Amino acid sequence: MATPTMLLLLADGRFPAGAHAHSAGLEAAVAAGRVTDLTTLAEYLSGRLATAGLVAAAFAAAARGVAWSAGRSAALARLDAELDARTVSPAQRSVSRRQGRALLRAGRRIWPAVTFDDLPTAADGPHQPLVLGLVGAAAGLDPGQVATVAAHATVTGAASAAVRLLGLDPYQVQGLLVRLAATCDATAARAARAAEEPPERLPAAAAPLADIHAEAHATWEVRLFAS
């Protein structure tokens, strides 16, 4: 069982997995004029929770659910394929796998006695939510807690980037995150329940505009964030 401190450490944006280098698609949304102030940021973050947040949290919780199972390797490979199918944008798939590699490096250094070798061995690495599920298991988190970490990361990364990209008042941005806390908790709870279903029945909420923005962002020669 994870201690409250362990849960906080894993959810902390300073956890050494490179999350600070990503804006969760916000940089492209700002450039397109779709996020311009606190109000539109709130809409953006709510949309993230309902789509990418729900999917990531469900898959992370599902990976945590099979973490100690005898058929873990096959189960993780199936989850990886299902998540790939739900990630339409090649740029988004690449970002998820890059972040997965970064989190995997951190997990192996922090918990050297735990094996992560059953993760899918795609050339570009495993999807980040699957790695989070196994890292969460190593930290003693249960599937619901892992889902909470995943949902929380969906909004906090973009919120932090908004301060830099839009020059917003960090106190107001933090206040926005506080107001979204109940929605974040509800998303995590829904994801944890969904994670009990077979992989093909996990959430598949899509955000086509986010996919378009991700593809455009990947072509930029100059950018503040990797995604």
Rank of each mutant, 00 (worst) to 15 (best):
Arg86Ala: 15
Arg86Cys: 06
Arg86Trp: 05
Thr87Val: 03
Thr87Lys: 03
Val88Leu: 11
Val88Cys: 10
Ser89Lys: 01
Pro90Leu: 05
Pro90His: 01
Pro90Glu: 03
Ala91His: 10
Ala91Gly: 03
Gln92Ala: 15
Gln92Phe: 05
Arg93Lys: 10
Arg93Glu: 10
Ser94Pro: 00
Ser94Phe: 07
Ser94Trp: 11
Val95Thr: 13
Ser96Glu: 11
Ser96Gly: 14
Arg97Cys: 04
Arg97Leu: 05
Arg98Met: 00
Arg98Pro: 00
Gln99Ile: 05
Gly100Asn: 05
Gly100Arg: 07
Gly100Gln: 12
Arg101Thr: 13
Ala102Val: 04
Ala102Trp: 08
Ala102Phe: 01
Leu103Val: 02
Leu104Glu: 13
Leu104Tyr: 09
Leu104Ile: 11
Arg105His: 12
Arg105Asp: 15
Arg105Ser: 14
Arg105Leu: 14
Arg105Asn: 06
Ala106Lys: 01
Gly107Asp: 08
Arg108Ala: 14
Arg108Met: 14
Arg109Tyr: 08
Ile110Trp: 13
Ile110Asp: 07
Trp111Gln: 04
Trp111Val: 07
Trp111Glu: 10
Pro112Lys: 09
Val114Gly: 02
Val114Ala: 12
Thr115Gly: 15
Thr115Leu: 02
Phe116Glu: 07
Asp117Trp: 05
Asp117Pro: 00
Asp118Ser: 14
Asp118Gln: 05
Asp118Ala: 15
Leu119Tyr: 07
Leu119Met: 11
Leu119Lys: 06
Pro120Glu: 11
Thr121Pro: 08
Thr121Asp: 15
Thr121Ala: 15
Ala122Gln: 07
Ala122Leu: 13
Ala122Gly: 12
Ala122Ile: 00
Ala123Tyr: 02
Asp124Phe: 02
Gly125Ser: 11
Gly125Ala: 11
Pro126Asp: 10
His127Lys: 03
His127Leu: 00
Pro129Lys: 12
Pro129Val: 02
Pro129Glu: 12
Pro129Arg: 13
Pro129Cys: 03
Pro129Tyr: 08
Leu130Asp: 12
Val131Lys: 07
Leu134Pro: 04
Leu134His: 11
Leu134Ala: 10
Leu134Tyr: 07
Val135Glu: 01
Val135Tyr: 13
Val135Pro: 07
Gly136Trp: 10
Gly136Thr: 12
Gly136Phe: 12
Ala137Thr: 07
Ala138Glu: 10
Ala139Thr: 03
Gly140Leu: 08
Leu141Trp: 14
Leu141Pro: 06
Leu141Phe: 13
Leu141Ser: 09
Asp142Asn: 12
Asp142Glu: 14
Asp142Pro: 00
Pro143Cys: 01
Pro143Ser: 00
Pro143His: 03
Gly144Trp: 13
Gly144Ala: 11
Val146Thr: 13
Val146Glu: 10
Thr148Gly: 02
Thr148Trp: 15
Thr148Cys: 06
Val149Tyr: 14
Val149Gln: 08
Ala150Lys: 09
Ala151Trp: 01
Ala151Asp: 10
His152Gln: 13
His152Val: 01
Thr154Glu: 13
Thr154Val: 00
Val155Tyr: 04
Thr156Val: 15
Thr156His: 10
Thr156Gly: 03
Thr156Arg: 09
Ala158Met: 01
Ala159Trp: 11
Ala159Lys: 08
Ser160Val: 12
Ser160Gln: 14
Ser160Ile: 09
